[in-house]
Design a protein around this nucleic acid. Structure first.
Lengths: 216, 216, 216, 216
DNA sequence: CATGAATGAGACTTCATTCAT
DNA sequence: AATGAATGAAGTCTCATTCAT
């Protein structure tokens, strides 16, 4: 016999769902306007609540932003770390998989706006920068680096400085996110992200192969 | 015989110099704070004039910013176009030269802050975005593309979509500028620009070579 | 034979105790922060209930405050009136007793904070001022005055305007309360209340004695 | 021949007078409402300027308040110090003079509201309390104490602890100020300040005289 | 009885822009 | 040409009070 999960009264369900709704609204607004230019009143309106309600759930604007990042970005990194740990094949394929997945799950979504926002405003909000650096950047870089180290160890990549190469390899992806959320929305020069990613990864893998392994 | 241009009295020369001083002050402030966060009062103080004086020379904040861009960025592109037109050698070398020069003359200087600023705030200031896109981005992209076209035509590069590859190739440089003016000042992970540029260009040229031309 | 009042079941006793707990919490918060600056949320938290509960027992902030005053201050005055009625000795001793008792039972306790609060905020909350004036001030003044009248009648005090002298005599005590709850907490100049009260009463009694009765 | 003082242009005169106007408006508003309850917008309206103008002259609300105190209170103390230094007569007369003058120049004026305000809100604004304690209270107390010391030295006062007595003697004056700006405005019990001061000073001087010197 | 989520008016503070001098 | 005083809209955050559950 099934005991249906006791349905919470609407009012309480509301309470539980509220933070998610607020975070979703905040994400949208932050992505559209940036951190400084986002008005909490707009976030509230977007979530269908009053200004004051935001402060029931988040201490202030910065904490609201951090919550958005934790909710949407930090989790995704954990999943990627899992993938790397379990992968069993050519490091070039692993690198391709990780980068494409980064693009697909973050870069191609609204979330890329957060990455762009951080690059754009880190300077003006040192606390946020510190937070994001620890929770996202350093952790993400470690992930990419580990793939490069693996590739070199297995003689699938030519030897190189993996720290620097990590910066080089992440740059085009980051840049594509930036691009997508800066000039592209002003409907300037169209740019096909898939083609861009393919071109970049093709070139990169090619450039990483050990001497003599270059192929068409 | 040449008649030397009558030397202006000092106070009048000062009058002519005034806009330059204002632009220099504005550049510094924009780079440090970004467009929105720059207060005209700070620009004025930095230039040693009053707030009102700014409005004698520039209609408003946006026009002041455009003037900064014209003064410092647009000119540099013209010079680079010259270089390309006159170059006579392997396209890989030309590409390397153009990219390194971009880095040295813009990326490594205060001016990179403008590039970063535009990526960061284009969304919030569509007029600026439009202006910058026409005057800087499209023109700069045409320059890189022309080098790729040249390389393919001379069979020095493998065939590829030059538009996309331009985006890919500019990304790491742009990204390094962004980086330098976003997280690095918060003294996070140090990153050696020279090493970064070398790694990137090395990889890129390697990846662009025609099949079979790969070398150590 | 007395039939003891039927003992209420525990949960109901708790119900009866609830207002007392709320008043205690309110007293503490009002004393610490003042009337305007006290947040009902803090009162509620301090009492271990929710904000809404306060409104079940008290119509609003002002009524809550009035209840605190009635509970803690008004009662004390009644007791003092009793003492005066029953006293049988030199009026100087009676005055000393009343003043010392006022200090010991109110001034030296948390309750002095209410006196201070009223002086501080009467102006901004005329309704509270009116209430406090009738329930506390006028009644208290009548008490002191009656002692002075008694002293003059018995030729134990020199003749004087008892209304004015009441104000003069209450001033140092009131001031000590104010002091204790304004600058002293900021740990400024220490001041020994006992010494202060002794000095004041000694001087006052001395000043009140009939001509020729001055003693060391 | 008289050279009329060159009349400043209206605009500049305005600038010079502006801070005084603002301080006057602020004084009035602070006295009427207290510190926390004073809205800067009201101060501005009272001075006939816009809200923003206040911030041209004073960094924030606290600095505005400090400026009011410096302008109106601190100066008065200096003058009183002068009087004491120059006085040549019985210390009782000096004490009477100082206290009456304090009342006349501060207590009976709008400025008493500042004294009341500080007692009322010192607790909630520790920075202001600190400032006021150093600039006003300690300095004022030193002044009174010095008179008592003088009186004892000249055998015009009975020996006593001058620190404590200073607190006792200032209390009635302070209290009268408090009174005037707390309950009296609510037009409660009238109280004649002159009679109050006379009664207090008479009693106090009487109480301070050396043993045996008591007179009618 | 009790809860606590929600509201919304209102406070301080900032800054691009104007304009009398 | 230059000043700098003045404006006022806008943004973050607070809190007494209400009300559905």
């Amino acid at each position: 016999m099934q005991v249906p999960p006791e349905p919470k009264p609407r009012w309480e369900r509301r309470k539980d769902a509220r933070p998610q709704e607020l975070l979703a609204a905040a994400l949208g607004q932050f992505v559209e306007r940036g951190f400084a230019a986002t008005r909490l009143e707009d976030v509230a309106r977007r979530a269908g609540v009053s200004k004051g309600t935001l402060y029931l759930y988040f201490e202030n604007k910065e904490e609201l932003f951090k919550a958005v990042v934790r909710e949407h970005i930090v989790n995704a990194i954990g999943a990627a770390e899992q993938t790397v740990a379990e992968f069993d094949g050519h490091s070039g394929e692993l690198l391709r998989a990780i980068l494409m997945r980064w693009w697909d799950q973050i870069g191609a979504t609204e979330l890329a706006g957060i990455t762009k926002l951080m690059m754009a405003e880190a300077n003006n909000f040192p606390d946020l920068a510190q937070f994001y650096n620890v929770e996202v950047i350093e952790r993400g870089n470690r992930l990419i680096s580990s793939v490069l180290v693996r590739g070199i160890a297995r003689a699938e990549f030519r030897p190189h400085d993996t720290e620097v190469m990590t910066a080089v390899l992440t740059a085009p992806v980051l840049m594509l996110m930036m691009w997508t959320h800066s000039f592209l929305p002003c409907d300037m020069s169209a740019l096909d992200p898939q083609a861009y990613m393919e071109a970049f990864i093709g070139m990169a893998l090619n450039g990483l192969l050990p001497p003599g392994a270059n192929v068409a």
